[in-house]
Write a protein that binds this DNA or RNA. Structure first.
Lengths: 341, 341
DNA sequence: TATAAAAGTTAACGCGCGTAAAATATATAG
DNA sequence: CTATATATTTTACGCGCGTTAACTTTTATA
């Protein structure tokens, strides 16, 4: 700590013995100045702990170092985890990420886009709400701000989409379930929030037909993002009506499966792959909580790492000038075998 | 949308027929201008969708409208929920909240404080990591920025602390458990991240002694924020060693309880309050998932609403000039009876 | 209708930094 | 050691808005 409080770059330039424009250049890119100059600046930096005023910095910069990260529901640990992953990668790349959650509300989603605009971010990583999203608003936003979509695809919107190969998820699990027991029925929401749900259903149907089985689909009523509750009430209804038509249930996602497990518990159904069990239940996503359900949930793991890495790389490549055509990248899921199926 | 693109406040003032300083005043506080002036500005606002440049705005304002919200772990839905609650209240109060998670890492916590400083927020709502936090860094921060602490108390730091009455939580649950069955033992982490854990243990001990029972405490090994996993492995160890010494376990928090339930499942223990069950398990917090465990978890609900409301009110009162002495406010928990105990 | 108070206008400065142009210094190559 | 390319310095302007001061207009109260 220096004895003198540094107020601005002018003063800092003075104590470091370098001119202000060069210091400014340094803060924009430390590698853009001569090594000896850089050393001087960094020495002064250690002695005086000065940090440029971010507001003044961003005022005239054509592109800020800000990045927006928006997920549909931060209270879902799956999204919290992927947001964290993205956040870290942005920081490592020298950017300033800001996290937003639309909390399942399209109006909030639009407000965030607005607020994001005024942040003048150099790029945005966006997991849209999905079907509920105001497509026009998102498209307009993507036209103005370099945006990579992830998790939930709005076709041809933004620079690129990075996500999971939804049909492959279902297909993988159907193969496994058929190999080890009765063919599964498919348990989903009637009005899923996320377009992946449709692709997963199609993947299920294809896989079943490929294996010569008749697809059975059970749709739980309910809208919104309280998937566990929808899974529970839908599960209760299905169990009471004996509507699954098989002893094996593949859920469209883990949160639904968690709710179904609760319903099974309430109804006294034993879930698991052992002889004595009444039902096998599988999910999709490898939700952080699915390892701790009773029984632990067999599921298909999303490739968090690859999705977040590729999304960030794609965004920064574009931000840094490498223009490429719109591209969809899908990563495969990995089977996670646990006790539930 | 107007035909003309408004570039800055100068131009916007022109089209609205009001002088720039008055427009500036309006954006600082819409109520500070005459109703007729306000109407003119808002008419122009609808016709031209102009928004002031936030960087230029914050550059010289003594206090920005930014508010920082920091939680120890966004991937914990409990914190995600409370963060959402706080966020909404800030927006409603006309502030711009920004969310941060320290992800259980004290180094990250410090970095966020740094980055928060350069945001020049008018106030910060901070749930510190707890024992792992760098107290000195947090105290130094609180000396510079109006900060209200919540969830986890660092004594006498910041403007105020708002949280839950930890001993009351345990006490409430001990009363209930003793009333309805065997007195509980207390299941916690050996090295809890959060100072509330100690207070909950003390509340448990007090309540047990008050009721004439001998406290039994089982401490699970493990550090960090993977509470479920610690609860599971610790639970397995305790069950194998038959270390609980009673058929009733009160967990220090729900996440630990969730892990213990998994351990019970693995070991074939039936959990619940019915005759045929081997163990009763209770948690504390009313974690969003605790409704969906098998069996659903009996717990003590935190008063999210009151905590977040009071934290935000306290902060804004201070920000807006109402100085008050340091104050601790604790809200009581509410018993949530479910099937597990 | 007179008058004070409140609100608005004009003019001007400054915030902290990005950035550009021209002049100068330093490094690298031949 | 000169020629050339590359860095740095000097100088200067501008970004968009906050803010102040002196002045003028509108509104409220008597």
């Amino acid at each position: 700590m220096g004895v003198v409080k540094i107020k601005n770059m002018e003063e800092f330039a003075a104590v470091s013995g370098i001119s202000r424009p060069t210091v400014s250049k340094y803060f924009n890119d430390p590698d853009s100045v001569r090594a000896s100059t850089r050393a001087k600046i960094e020495a002064a930096l250690e002695a005086h702990d000065y940090r440029p005023n971010i507001y003044a910095m961003n005022q005239n910069r054509k592109l800020t170092k800000n990045v927006g990260i928006m997920v549909p529901l931060m209270a879902d640990p799956f999204f919290a985890e992927i947001a964290r992953n993205l956040e870290k990668r942005c920081i490592d790349a020298g950017y300033r990420p800001t996290l937003y959650s639309s909390h399942g509300d399209p109006a909030v989603e639009e407000e965030i886009l607005d607020s994001l605009r005024s942040l003048k971010p150099s790029g945005v990583l966006l997991a849209p709400l999905g079907r509920a999203s105001n497509r026009a608003a998102i498209e307009a936003f993507c036209a103005d701000v370099p945006t990579v979509l992830f998790d939930s695809n709005l076709k041809d919107t933004g620079l690129a989409f990075v996500g999971s190969d939804a049909p492959q998820f279902s297909s993988l699990m159907v193969d496994y379930l058929c190999r080890t027991g009765e063919p599964p029925c498919f348990f989903e929401m009637k009005n899923p929030a996320n377009p992946n749900a449709n692709r997963r259903r199609l993947g299920y149907i294809d896989a079943m037909e490929r294996l010569g089985h008749k697809p059975i689909i059970y749709q739980a009523a309910g809208t919104g993002w309280s998937f566990e509750e929808i899974g529970r009430t839908g599960g209760l209804a299905a169990l009471e009506a004996k509507a699954f038509g098989t002893n094996t249930v593949l859920c469209s996602n883990d949160r639904l499966a968690i709710g179904l497990l609760t319903a099974c518990y309430e109804k006294g159904y034993r879930v698991g792959r052992e002889e004595a069990c009444d039902l096998r239940v599988a999910g999709q996503d490898d939700h952080p909580f699915s390892r701790f359900t009773c029984p632990p949930l067999t599921t298909v793991a999303q490739d968090y790492e690859s999705v977040s890495r590729h999304a960030v790389e794609t965004l920064f490549r574009a931000v840094e000038g490498d223009e490429r055509p719109y591209e969809v990248t899908l990563f495969e899921g990995r089977l996670v075998m646990r006790a539930s199926a």
